[in-house]
Nucleic acid binder design. Structure first.
Length: 275
DNA sequence: AACACGCCCTGCGCGC
DNA sequence: TGCGCGCAGGGCGTGT
């Protein structure tokens, strides 16, 4: 479900709604996530701690608690973190519950269970293997063509695969990769190293623009996205190519094509995006 | 050693 | 109406 803009939206929402609140108790109802949930550690580390700051790194949600405790969460394909009144009925797939002050609950909900939810000490967080090899944040000022070109020019990957390579740039998922490629006029199968530097500059700019717009829309570009208040999105910002196979290109009216790259669908306009 | 692939899961929409 | 199939926004382990 979520790419960088959706995770960013969740983090901002959590910061607004639960920063400053205390975790009273934790209930683990399902441990079978991508990585088995360490219930005992959650029970030991979280109760009594205050939520101080919630931030995003790549597609990870990082919750800083008092006493140097950190909750690291990932939404996978279908995860949600929703804050709601504690007296509402559990939904199917509400896997981890944190009772907060003021009668609220934070619930980690994830039908496909590809997500991650764990409690860590700061030391564990800083050495966390999953976080060691993450690439650049696309929205950072310093992430520009100058900074990245030497890597891009050496890559023999199709450009779409490179855009989605989290050891290079983080947060760009299957939808926004297709969208950015469309707006830059780059074919998803173009070999990264064969682009001109100018074209790469343009593409990176489109990546930033697409992500920033989606954040500005509150992540509501994706149809079943749910923010931290449980509000679902609706298409405020229409997608140009993703999911539009056989529909007409909004620029040149040719039919949008779908191909599969590394097992994932890519959508592009054969008129606007050339190899 | 850089790639692509399969797989982890549930749910949904489609065609029959 | 029910059933099977293909597909889904992520990421990791494995094999080439």
């Amino acid at each position: 479900m979520p790419e960088l803009p959706e995770v960013e939206t969740v983090c901002r929402g959590l910061q607004q709604t639960i920063a400053g609140k205390q975790i009273k108790a934790v209930i683990v109802r399902e441990t079978r996530l991508r990585k088995p949930v360490m219930s005992e550690k959650l029970y030991r580390l979280l109760p009594g701690k205050n939520l101080q700051r919630i931030e995003r790194r790549a597609k990870y949600i990082v919750m800083h608690l008092s006493d140097s405790v950190i909750v690291l969460a990932h939404l996978g394909m279908s995860g949600q973190i929703v804050v709601q009144p504690a007296d509402e009925q559990y939904r199917k797939h509400d896997h981890i519950i944190a009772n907060l002050s003021e009668g609220l609950q934070m619930r980690f909900h994830d039908p496909r269970r590809f997500g991650l939810f764990e409690a860590l000490t700061v030391e564990e967080f800083e050495k966390h293997p999953r976080l060691q090899h993450l690439g650049l944040e696309p929205l950072d000022k310093g992430t520009d063509a100058e900074q990245t070109w030497s890597h891009v020019r050496q890559s023999k990957k199709p450009i779409k695969n490179l855009l989605m390579d989290a050891s290079f740039i983080v947060g760009v998922g299957n939808i926004y990769a297709s969208e950015a490629l469309f707006f830059a006029g780059v074919h998803p199968q173009k070999i990264a190293g064969k682009m001109s530097k100018k074209k790469w500059q343009e593409l990176l700019q489109q990546v930033k623009t697409v992500l920033a717009k989606a954040i500005a829309q509150g992540g509501t570009t994706l149809n079943d996205f749910v923010n931290s208040q449980g509000e679902s999105g609706y298409f405020q910002l229409e997608l140009a190519v993703y999911g539009r196979e056989n529909q007409t290109c909004k620029t040149c009216a040719k039919p949008i094509k779908r191909i599969v790259q590394s097992g994932r669908s890519s959508f592009y306009c054969p008129g606007c995006q050339r190899i």
